[in-house]
Nucleic acid binder design. Structure first.
Length: 622
RNA sequence: GGGGGUGUGGUGAAGCCUGGAGUUCACGCCGGCCUGUCAAGCCGGAGGUCGCGGGUUCAAAUCCCGUCAUCCCCGCCA
């Protein structure tokens, strides 16, 4: 079978035959429709139209049948009168939900008193003169409806039906508009869209790589890119100057509401750039998406916070600015406290801080639950204090606090009568983490009606592990502010890295990059990566830096997360056409799945005996 | 890796705490009636190994243990 004009003709003939079988007469695919269902208005009354779509609902009154026809544009009521047109009535009898149908008819204004104000097309209806089933539907596994809260596994198994639901259809449209807005914004600024490979070298630095075995080089593996990071930097070396890409990225880590194994980023990079150039390029793109999806103007420039300030005031590097309840440092208040736990913490270099949760009127068990939550988050404990209406403090530790100390506390927290104060004393990292989480538990608004973007700047170069080990806070190609400082005080050194945060969600991150191979080597040194290891993993990249690399900077924005928030969805899967479950499973295709022995042989792969055995006995229930 | 929630006809829920006949509600499905509905209405009907396995008990959807799936959180995610 060759490819040529003959094959196209064959395809056409098959299509026509299928059409003839389905409708009992030849179906001319090109002229199935002369109008779109959701666009008909009173001004169209009197015109003959051809429509095609799906049966959304069928209301059979015996003497008159109503069919709500849905296509991608919306829905319209079609009216069938079996007495006037028995042939059409016969077809209408067999129609069921989600049959794919085509019809012809006359658009007319609805009779007095039957207008449906809830429908954009509610002033008109189509009097059907011809009706044809293009494709029947079996009874559905769930109803095509936004009202029912269908089990998500079921939705994913029949995702193609799920996508017919108005909410999902709207999310697909929103996603498409978001990406279109981004492309337009980038093109308008003179960016070049460049594709980078999806089969790349494995450089397991942060997340686990998704690996792809090579057939031609058995025993070797590609990785799917965690991001186009190094390739886009090479594009800067390559003189592209302004790069962008809607890039698919892969990270093999555990799933969360806002994390999938594969996801999409708006990836950008610019030569001769610093931070301000990045922000200036990105703000219009993000604002364009908000305009496209919400019809609102986001004030630019976005506000900024340094990482240190964000941690101190909100206990996190991705603060939700939509509400207050900021952390208050109480070290001065409790420096010589009668409450030994706090005094000891402070003496050991710890941090005591609190939040004012406002009037809560919580029961004792609810307060205990907060203490339990704090412990789950890693705190040794949590002190709650209720400011009574008479100004006295009710708390398990009230008796350890002197009058002066109590007054200083109320003053420092700016507490009002009735307020619930939550206080943690621990290592600074733990205190902030716990209070930051409690702040969200107690104050975070439902949904995302309000949008508060911000840049968080000046991240540390390295994150210090509990064992004192260093790892890159951003990634190892991020430029530090000061190389000497980085070498001498790596735990404190700041980098030219920044995050974009929206309503407490990290939308993306970027940085000014290292363009000097000597600096890059210094970073690897501090990280304890030997010359030999650096050469084998990143030698190809460091070599490129030696050929006149321009200073450059860039950023990547998580498209799924941005659309999720703008669409007010609780998780990323609602804005992905075909997502996977938390265990990386696709219930529709039953993927991942075992492969033929022959495929493995060709790849030079043999499964471990225990894995083989587990596969053989694997027969999951439910 | 750890903690928590959920699993009941095709769908969504109630029943579980406090064991006593697969019981109930809504939607869907099948059949019938019906000329203005729009989540149509009315009448009738079918449909379930209560995720799976084990235990306790005279008796388990219900209590206990294990396991699987799924969702949320912690860890993890440069």
């Amino acid at each position: 079978m060759g490819v040529g004009p003959g094959d196209h003709e064959g395809l056409e003939i098959r299509r026509r035959v299928v059409g003839r079988c389905a409708g009992g007469r030849e179906v001319d695919q090109a002229s199935l429709r002369s109008a779109r269902a959701g666009e008909l208005r009173a001004s169209d009354a009197g015109t003959d139209v051809k429509l095609a779509g799906w049966v959304a609902t069928r209301r059979d009154h015996g003497g008159v049948v109503f069919i709500d026809l849905r296509d991608a544009s919306g829905r319209i009521q079609a009216v069938i009168n079996p007495e006037e047109n028995p042939a059409v009535g016969t077809v209408a009898d067999v129609l069921r939900d989600e049959y794919c149908i085509a019809l012809s008819g006359l658009v007319r204004k609805r009779p007095e008193g039957t207008i449906n104000p809830d429908l954009p097309t509610g002033e008109v209806e189509v009097a059907v003169t011809e009706l044809r089933v293009l494709s029947p539907s079996e009874p559905l596994p769930f109803q095509i409806d936004d009202r029912a809260d269908v089990d998500e596994g079921r939705r994913l198994e029949f995702r193609y039906l799920d996508l017919r639901r108005p909410r999902m259809a709207a999310n697909l449209v929103a996603r498409s508009r978001a990406i279109a807005a981004m492309r337009t914004a980038m093109v308008d600024q003179g960016f070049l869209e460049v594709e980078t490979p999806t089969l790349v070298k494995s450089t397991p630095e942060g997340a686990r790589d998704v690996l792809v075995p090579s057939r031609l080089r058995q025993g070797s593996f590609y990785a799917l890119p965690q991001s186009p990071q190094l390739f886009k930097q090479l594009l800067m070396v390559g003189g592209v100057e302004r790069y962008y890409q809607i890039a698919r990225c892969y990270r093999d880590e555990d799933f969360r509401a806002d994390r999938q194994i594969e996801f999409t980023q708006l990836d950008i990079e610019g030569a001769f750039w610093g931070r301000e150039d990045v922000f200036a390029a990105l703000e219009p793109a993000v604002a364009a998406v908000a305009r496209a999806l919400r019809g609102i103007e986001i004030p630019a420039p976005f506000p900024r916070l340094t990482w240190a300030e964000s941690m101190a005031r909100f206990g996190t590097d991705k603060p939700d600015l939509r509400f207050g309840m900021e952390l208050v440092e109480l070290s001065d208040v409790f420096a010589g406290s009668g409450f030994r736990a706090f005094a000891d913490v402070l003496a050991a270099g710890g941090l005591v801080a609190g939040i004012d949760a406002g009037r809560r009127d919580l029961s004792r068990s609810a307060l205990d639950a907060l203490v339990e939550r704090a412990r789950d988050l890693g705190a040794r404990g949590l002190v709650w204090i209720v400011v009574e209406d008479d100004g006295t403090l009710r708390s398990p530790i009230a008796k350890f606090l002197g009058d002066e100390e109590q007054a200083a506390l109320v003053s420092a927290m700016q507490a009002s009568p009735g307020d619930l104060l939550l206080i943690v004393g621990d290592r600074p990292k733990v205190t902030r983490l716990v209070l930051g989480a409690l702040r969200l538990d107690l104050g975070r608004p439902e949904g995302h009606d309000e949008l508060r973007f911000l840049w968080v700047t000046d991240f540390p170069v390295f994150a210090v592990g509990d064992d004192g080990s260093l790892s890159p806070e951003h990634h190892p190609f991020t430029a530090p502010y000061d190389i000497t400082e980085m070498r001498d005080h790596p735990a404190e050194a700041l980098s030219r890295a920044y995050d974009l945060v929206l309503n407490g969600v990290e939308l993306g991150s970027g940085s000014e990059r290292i363009h000097d191979p000597r600096v890059q080597k210094e970073v690897f040194d501090v990280l304890g990566i030997s010359d030999r290891e650096a050469e084998s993993r990143f030698g190809w990249f460091m070599r490129a830096l030696r050929y006149g690399t321009p200073p450059h900077a860039g950023f990547a924005v998580g498209v799924d997360r941005l659309v999720m928030i703008l669409q007010n969805e609780p998780n990323i899967r609602e804005v992905m056409p075909f997502p996977k479950t938390q265990s990386g499973y696709d219930p529709m295709t039953n993927s991942p799945s075992a492969v033929d022995e022959l495929q493995l042989v060709e790849l030079g792969i043999d499964l471990r005996p225990d894995v083989r055995e587990a596969l053989a006995t694997d027969s999951p229930d439910g």
